[in-house]
Amino acid sequence: MDPIFMDERLKPIYAKVRQGTRLSKEDGICIYQTRDLLGAGKIAHAARCARHGNTAFYVYNQHLNYTNICKNRCRFCAYAKDRQESGAYAWSIEEISRRLMDRIDEPVDELHIVGGLNEALGFDYYMDLLKTVKQIRPHAAIKAFTCVEIDYLSRLSGLGVDETIAHLKEAGLDMMPGGGAEILNTRIHDALFPKKIDHTRWIEIVKAVHKAGITTNATMLYGHIETIEERVDHLITLREIQDETHGFSAFVPLAFHSKNTRMPELPPTTAVDDLKSVAAARLMLDNFDHIKAYWVMIGEPLSQVALSFGADDLDGTIIEERITHTAGASSAKGLTREQMEHMIRKAGFEPVQRDSFYNPKTRTGR
């Protein structure tokens, strides 16, 4: 039996999804604008279940944010510091080794590594970072650096982008997290992060990364000054890149947190907006296998609900998240494997621990 919709505009969208017809920009805008949140969720949930059934994924991962010193100082960022500013830090290779060894008894499958553009760190530092992590955690995947960092490392090393990627891959880079895109739009770039690479350069680099055989995630930072139309354009751009490269592994909607940024007046995103962003992603990104409900950004309870709005992945245990919590996130800084699986089961799904490439590690019963 077809679902009942309060908003009649959702009926043709549901029909398209059932027929496997790609949604239009107008469809995406409708998903964001509709007041029928449950209706949009039903369509996204049907698409999610068609791909993944009752499964929900998570990964045992550890975050390493090696420096918060950054020359870009984007308006939306609460994490970045100037070198002489209180709280600024840059971990030595020895400190990174210590932090890895402190948790060496834990079954970490993925190292998530990103940081600021710290001009005091040379290209050799990044190579040593990757090699050190790979030496200590030889069986864990290194998911490191954004396209912004790749561009910076290319200029720092004096190498072309392709050669820079090749060096990083040889040193141990396995995949990339996909940040730095924010909203792929000139207006927003100029207003919020003018020192960062623009969307044209981001697209150029992500295509080069995919060509080199490195998969990435894709993200969208929403809830600041962007319009609904700009969000949908962002999703369509990612969809077009995926048509060409097939290099995106998952999409991660990132809810903006304004505390300690240069936009503190902006209110937090609402649960309705967060769920619509997950649903819109699942329905617009028909060529993406996975949609994440990033519990760090939207909180543990809402991420459980998001599993019924199109998401199939809660990301990971994290262990110690710094960037979003600096901007006021109230979620835990890390969760245990048992907590992750409890969250998933209580949401009505079957937890599957995965590696970075969605190969199941274990499948647990009730």
Results as ranks from 00 to 15, higher is better:
residue 129 L to P: 01
residue 115 G to E: 00
residue 60 Y to M: 12
residue 129 L to Y: 02
residue 279 A to N: 02
residue 228 I to H: 08
residue 108 V to P: 01
residue 81 K to I: 10
residue 49 C to I: 14
residue 84 Q to E: 15
residue 205 I to M: 06
residue 205 I to P: 07
residue 265 E to S: 06
residue 319 I to S: 07
residue 52 H to L: 09
residue 352 V to C: 15
residue 99 R to Y: 11
residue 39 G to L: 11
residue 120 A to F: 11
residue 6 M to G: 08
residue 31 I to C: 09
residue 306 A to W: 06
residue 289 D to T: 05
residue 44 A to C: 01
residue 350 E to T: 12
residue 77 C to L: 12
residue 264 P to V: 03
residue 23 L to I: 04
residue 345 R to M: 13
residue 302 L to T: 10
residue 86 S to V: 14
residue 181 A to Y: 00
residue 280 A to Q: 04
residue 321 E to P: 01
residue 321 E to G: 04
residue 164 T to H: 07
residue 223 G to I: 00
residue 98 R to F: 01
residue 29 I to S: 09
residue 273 D to L: 12
residue 52 H to F: 09
residue 98 R to C: 10
residue 143 K to V: 00
residue 260 N to I: 06
residue 224 H to M: 10
residue 248 F to Y: 13
residue 221 L to C: 04
residue 134 K to I: 05
residue 334 G to T: 13
residue 208 A to Q: 14
residue 278 V to R: 14
residue 155 R to G: 03
residue 17 V to P: 02
residue 45 H to E: 12
residue 116 G to C: 11
residue 218 A to Q: 10
residue 177 P to G: 08
residue 298 I to D: 04
residue 336 T to F: 12
residue 366 R to D: 14
residue 350 E to N: 13
residue 76 F to P: 06
residue 343 M to W: 06
residue 139 H to A: 11
residue 353 Q to K: 13
residue 16 K to P: 04
residue 108 V to M: 03
residue 92 S to T: 12
residue 55 T to W: 00
residue 262 R to P: 05
residue 112 H to V: 14
residue 13 I to F: 07
residue 351 P to C: 11
residue 36 D to M: 10
residue 154 S to V: 03
residue 41 G to R: 00
residue 240 E to L: 07
residue 344 I to R: 00
residue 337 R to F: 01
residue 217 N to Q: 03
residue 73 R to C: 12
residue 183 I to Y: 05
residue 63 H to V: 06
residue 355 D to L: 05
residue 147 C to M: 13
residue 291 I to H: 04
residue 110 E to C: 01
residue 296 V to A: 08
residue 114 V to W: 07
residue 17 V to I: 15
residue 334 G to Y: 13
residue 128 D to W: 05
residue 314 L to M: 12
residue 100 L to P: 02
residue 52 H to D: 12
residue 298 I to F: 06
residue 158 G to H: 06
residue 1 M to S: 13
residue 161 V to H: 00
residue 185 N to F: 00
residue 16 K to D: 01
residue 349 F to C: 14
residue 282 R to Y: 00
residue 74 C to L: 00
residue 59 V to T: 10
residue 108 V to L: 10
residue 213 G to N: 07
residue 47 A to Y: 04
residue 299 G to E: 03
residue 220 M to D: 00
residue 315 D to L: 15
residue 168 L to R: 06
residue 324 T to R: 05
residue 85 E to Q: 14
residue 83 R to V: 10
residue 139 H to G: 08
residue 273 D to Y: 08
residue 2 D to W: 13
residue 307 L to M: 07
residue 94 E to K: 15
residue 142 I to S: 10
residue 340 M to Y: 09
residue 206 V to W: 02
residue 41 G to M: 03
residue 155 R to D: 14
residue 31 I to L: 15
residue 300 E to W: 01
residue 326 T to M: 11
residue 352 V to F: 04
residue 1 M to F: 10
residue 340 M to F: 07
residue 299 G to M: 02
residue 212 A to C: 05
residue 260 N to D: 15
residue 279 A to F: 03
residue 3 P to D: 13
residue 209 V to D: 08
residue 255 A to T: 07
